[in-house]
Design a protein around this nucleic acid. Sequence first.
DNA 1: TGTTAGCACTCTAGCACGTCGAGTGCTAAC
DNA 2: GTTAGCACTCGACGTGCTAGAGTGCTAACA
Lengths: 344, 344
Amino acid sequence: MALSDRQHKILEAIINDYIQTAEPIGSRTIAKKYAMGISSATIRNEMSDLEDMGLITQPHTSSGRVPSQKGYRFYVDSMMPKKALTSEESLVLQQMILSNIYQVEHMMKKTATALARLTRYTAIVSEPYLKKTKIKHVQMIPVDDKTIFLVMVTDTKSVKNQPLSLSAAPEYEELNRLSNILTKHLSGKTIQEIDRPLIDQLLISFAHYAHILMPILGVIVGLIQDEDDMRVFTSGAKNILAFPEFSDIRKAEAIFQALEERDALISILNQPQTDNIQIIIGNENSLEILKDCSLIKANYSIDNQSTGSIALIGPTRMDYGHAVSVLQGILQNIQHVLKALSEG
Amino acid sequence: MALSDRQHKILEAIINDYIQTAEPIGSRTIAKKYAMGISSATIRNEMSDLEDMGLITQPHTSSGRVPSQKGYRFYVDSMMPKKALTSEESLVLQQMILSNIYQVEHMMKKTATALARLTRYTAIVSEPYLKKTKIKHVQMIPVDDKTIFLVMVTDTKSVKNQPLSLSAAPEYEELNRLSNILTKHLSGKTIQEIDRPLIDQLLISFAHYAHILMPILGVIVGLIQDEDDMRVFTSGAKNILAFPEFSDIRKAEAIFQALEERDALISILNQPQTDNIQIIIGNENSLEILKDCSLIKANYSIDNQSTGSIALIGPTRMDYGHAVSVLQGILQNIQHVLKALSEG
DNA sequence: TGTTAGCACTCTAGCACGTCGAGTGCTAAC
DNA sequence: GTTAGCACTCGACGTGCTAGAGTGCTAACA
């Protein structure tokens, strides 16, 4: 789609204005407010063309124009300005880094809060995906005569624990010996890498522990199957209420519902990602609940291994430029901190 | 305040009707709908008296009556029926018990979900308060050359972990010895009981470990000061949107805001509790945000030691009877499960 | 003395109607 | 290609009216 320079400017004006006001905008207003040096009639003609191209629409005859979904898509793909973060925004990100960098869970909560605060949209952040982080230490802790806790520390210094019921729990000393063995053979590996051959080998090498190694390794591997151990944090859900597009309470309700359900959040985060930062506008989204929203999403990674996701949900009338730059800033922060954590 | 039998019935009819419909109710409607065998004129006279007593009010002349805050208080104190749980409700509670009883965190999440689901109000649930639970096992886990994790298992089988930076982290073997010592001397004690004399005694007894015991004990005791380790779960926030009294979005926004802030939640849960189940109606509440709501709150306990709280937030027009009975049912469940956990 | 029918009165919700203003498309002139 | 002018459209908003639900008061009744 080729737009003239003037059409570009007009489309930009419409989108920028609508992002701010959520009101349809007319030719006269554009002429006055954006001082383009052409008359409203000319703008009208251009707008008519833009409408033919499907980039803007009229809610009803004789109202102003509103960007269409296609219009947003065009804007995002080929005209969106890169906005630099303001100094205040950078400061907030800075502070986020400085506090609580020793615990991934805290950092992820802070990340969500910062994202929501800086953008006024709703943030969803997932912890690093357990499957893809490396095991650093395995420790068994006795609880009672039939239960032990299996505690694993990962290279991102996240702690996972899982209770484990045995017919008879071993002595503390024996648990320590087992912990030692497991740590020695599993550290540096991701859970994904703990496969059948490795398990078999361990069971053979330590045959006299087999009866107890078996359930333990089972639990560790079981963590692959269920994603229950990846925590997902949200922040700024209430921001949704501030947008006129959600003044219909039922729409807001549906989203709040989704934000409370872990499965829904995970399916939001797990949507296909082709770009570095993926922008999904309105009903481009395969999820029914988000048809009225836009989603901006990114995966963060360590060592080029994608390990978790962060996302923003807002109205299709989103300030894409700003949201993307904040997301990018935060992305860098997370990766920086995670790297620091896993190295030292 | 002494009401005649008839006044009782009329007040009850008004309150029950208003709880269901959220509409002011008039004398004629009462006469028709609740078949009291008296005419609307008589009911009008009685209503006028009830209004003089301050139990009901008129939103405007020539509208029906609405229960006042005082009316709800009177109802709750002296006329509220005890409702038995339906078999479906009991079933939900039953299922809650059966699943995931081995991890307190899961149970608390489930509790919040069940509360919100059964009442359609908003639930707030706190984990058992760390200070008051007993330590069962202490384990140090090496992370890197300067960091160790301090992991504590409590008698409710909850796991707490805290990172700890040292100038130089000891060897694994030594950490195990230390873990052993700490477990031996601290297990069975609540964090509250770890006081100066106990610490001093440990430092003297194990003088050669003093340099490392010091920071560790510091961290453990530090947990007393900050309440950061008590998780608070909410569920059913979106239920708020279903009530016409929150169709003014700003009111809803304020509550959502509070529900996202841990501090706000804790101050809600920490409000004075005189009864077994505390009902705080409208602006009886000292917290500004809850002036338009009612709060039903209870503390759960093990061994008569109150260890955590559960609460429900809804409009002042709440189905108090039902909410109280659900809360009571859940309270019993929690205590039952916690007891089982700490014993076995 | 308590209860009730009847009536005048009040107030809101909802609808019809007219007006205003923002916006459009089209045409003719520049 | 651009613009001024004009007729037209449609929603927002204010006004006035009506219906209906509800009240309080009074007088009559058991």
